[in-house]
Design a binder for these strands. Sequence first.
RNA 1: CGGGGUGUAGCGCAGCCCGGUUAGCGCAUCUGGUUUGGGACCAGAGGGCCGGAGGUUCGAAUCCUCUCACCCCGACCA
Length: 570
Amino acid sequence: MRQSEYFIPTLKEEVTDAVIPSHQLMLRAGLVRQVGAGIFSFLPLGYKVLKNIIEILRDEMDNIGGQEFLLPALNPIEIWEQTGRVEAMGDVLFHIKNREGLVLAPTHEEIITFHARQHVKSYRDLPQIWYQIQTKFRNEPRPKSGVLRGRQFIMKDAYSLDSSLEGLDVSYNKHYQAYHDIFDRCNLNYFVVGASSGAMGGRQSQEFMVESNAGEDICALCDDCGYAANLEVASSNVKPVGRLDNNDEIEMFPTPNAKTINDLIEQFGLPEERCAKSVVYMVNNEPLLIFMRGNDELNESKLQAIVGTNNIRPAVSEELIKFTGADHGSIGPINLKTKIRIIADNLLKGANGLVSGANKDGFHYKNIDFERDCRIDEWYDLRTIQEGEQCPKCNSKLRVVKAIELGHIFKLGTKYSEALGATFLNSEGVEQPIIMGSYGIGVERILACYIEQNHDDKGIIWEYPITPFDVHLLGINLHNSDELKKGCEEIYEELLYAGFDVLFDDRDVSAGIKFNDADLIGLPLQIIVGKRNYDNGNVEIKNRRTGEREIVPIDGIEEYLLNYEPKSDE
RNA sequence: CGGGGUGUAGCGCAGCCCGGUUAGCGCAUCUGGUUUGGGACCAGAGGGCCGGAGGUUCGAAUCCUCUCACCCCGACCA
């Protein structure tokens, strides 16, 4: 491709709106342009990369027996009502205003299940892996970070249909392996974490993550044993509070100015670990009293998984007074005004000598013995782990990092097949719901994450196979020498003929502009054709990543390129 | 949805507090000339409903009200 005829609007200056490197460089290198919040056009160069990524996705999905569909973005709302997701998705789901009854699909479990219901009738029809690579629409409350979080984005989503849980495991594992192959081929540094399968009855779920400050997920990592988990489910080894030898009688004492755990510690000199925090949540509008160590943070994801719904929220003051008899700061397990289900964090199991609210404003109890003085209905891991705590597997120190979710594999189970009546007859002639898995990858996220991990202060650094072109041919000051121009054209033609995808900077601009644009665009190798070297029968080849330059004879260019890396398969 | 910020030429910005000729600067663009291996130089030119609506005023980019858009932090994130 001749750059003089190709649309690559590079920007010399920084773009103020772009905060993270990938967003900045995608704009400056001419890959994308923003049209609205979370809405982007891919320009030819950016789309070329996207297509390379999609080809890898397609290849690996086909490798595990996936069959590609083209599914509609416009969906009848009825099918979404049947699975309860119109309500569950809320404002995230785009509704068509001038055509009642249609929504823009944010994902495709419903449509896939719809087709399965139509045609999958027997266990002999299973298993199946169906996938698509298409645009999804989600009315994100806050699009951000360039293409990392858009209202419209391309997703590879796959769905497995199986007749048994064992079959689901097989399908799931195939995807697990395919995802590794995909992200490896894209040269990404990533890790896999155990993730929350949500409140809606999934079985197992893992996320493929890229560590990044631009990420919206938080993960715990153990660099020693490889333990990795989303903070939503991460656990750690922390010593339980345990029992004190002297078990004094429970005693109420006035605490008029103590509203928080820190107040109690400061005003009464109490040891932090003996202060129990009580939190009241409304779960499906029923109160639930939760006990944690004083300064631990309740993990709402864990709570959602325990109570089996995501309809939870902290209780407000009126509710606290109504159910416990006291407001914030004085709530505890003893003397509750009404009977409330009480759960507590595992670290408090069997503890005594505890301090907690007396359900009377301005009073606390001390010397509470959870075994002697009150009723705890159940014990769970409820806390959010902290940086530096011990790995649950090997006791090394855990790191807590921000991460971008690239992909998610998820054993769905029968939620959608049951809701939509997608059933089959098993070998005994018994009707059963199809057992499903769901597997998504954000296509633009691969691109953005790659740039996050492969750039320097000059620009992007591409590698095979996702690089938009194999090589950048830079003709320096061609208009000064007909011979040089002719020679450069010949090199271009020969490389094309040899099957290389070449971007040829034949523009009539100064050398500095070409060098800087080339570094910004970031093709892996630059073949620099200048008069001095050319007159000696040579060109200079620069490695974008290392900056190393080599003088190479013109008839050795092809060999050099072939030895550098396998050329992209276009 | 809460908090903060920004809308002035294709891009990046100044001007706004404290209202007053024709709204400015850099980059980019066009013409001519000189340059030519890391974003050249000289001379000239084009390009604006100062986000939109309403108001105050003799007079509004500037003050007031409303509104729209975008960015950041938070909430949310199937």
